[in-house]
């Protein structure tokens, strides 16, 4: 049974998740006419920068997050940003889109100078998220659980983060049982995606270096969050 407090927690997280989305004018640009590889790259870095800002605003609204140690808040955001952004992109791409939109987005990503060996696992991940048909509250909670992963570099109060993450895991587990009664494995499948996200995270570090060698510049916020000089 989901308790009253847990229902309030789900509502707070879902409201924050829905309230903080990438501005329409940024996403609209992604669907406009074709650009060169260079312009695609600039557009994708603009979207990524906007995703980081959205991620920080969403995270600040996670009940309990702002009572964590300030340095740990920074360490959690830096450690989880790539994974939370992939998860958010996968959730956006798995939404019902007018026909042709997904192809335009995929084409734009393919033509942005990203190395092929990174593209395959990324699109496989997007597909594996799409197949889950998560509800909004499941997506918001899974993103929250990704952010509240205690074993990120430089996190000091491990236990405080773990306690917060446990709270969210307990709510998500109950929600999965309630919303997917025919699929007892559903919760485990969601957690399996977090493992896939970690693998993508490792690929991402290599991808950045391949981009850097083609002297692509990232925005100051992306340089900070991705530790790129």
């Amino acid at each position: 049974e989901i308790t009253k407090e847990q229902r309030a927690l789900i509502k707070a997280i879902l409201d924050a998740y829905n309230r903080h989305q990438i501005p329409q004018d940024v996403t609209k640009k992604l669907l406009q006419e074709q650009y060169s590889a260079e312009e695609n790259f600039l557009l994708l870095t603009e979207v990524a920068t906007s995703q980081v800002q959205v991620l920080v605003e969403f995270t600040k609204n996670i009940p309990g997050f702002l009572s964590l140690d300030r340095e740990d808040q920074i360490a959690l955001l830096k450690g989880s940003a790539v994974e939370a952004m992939f998860l958010r992109s996968a959730q956006v791409l798995s939404k019902k889109m007018p026909s042709g939109y997904t192809e335009v987005l995929e084409e734009r990503i393919r033509k942005s100078g990203m190395s092929e060996e990174f593209m395959t696992p990324m699109f496989n991940f997007y597909k594996s998220i799409g197949e889950l048909h998560m509800t909004q509250d499941e997506q918001a909670l899974l993103t929250t659980i990704t952010i509240l992963t205690p074993d990120r570099p430089y996190v000091k109060s491990h236990e405080a983060v773990e306690r917060l993450q446990e709270t969210m895991l307990d709510v998500l587990r109950k929600l999965c049982v309630l919303q997917h009664p025919q699929e007892p494995q559903y919760f485990a499948r969601l957690l399996g995606r977090l493992t896939e996200l970690r693998t993508l995270h490792h690929y991402h570090v290599e991808m950045l270096t391949s981009w850097k060698t083609n002297d692509h510049k990232f925005t100051p916020l992306l340089c900070e969050i991705w530790d790129v000089q």
């Binding site: 600040k60 920074i74 955001l77 900070e224």
Partner: peptide, 16 residues
């Protein structure tokens, strides 16, 4: 040390 952009975003009032 460069002022952290992340810290600035974190310290900005929530729901901005």
């Amino acid at each position: 040390e460069e002022p952290s952009l992340l810290k600035k975003l974190l310290l900005a009032p929530a729901n901005s």
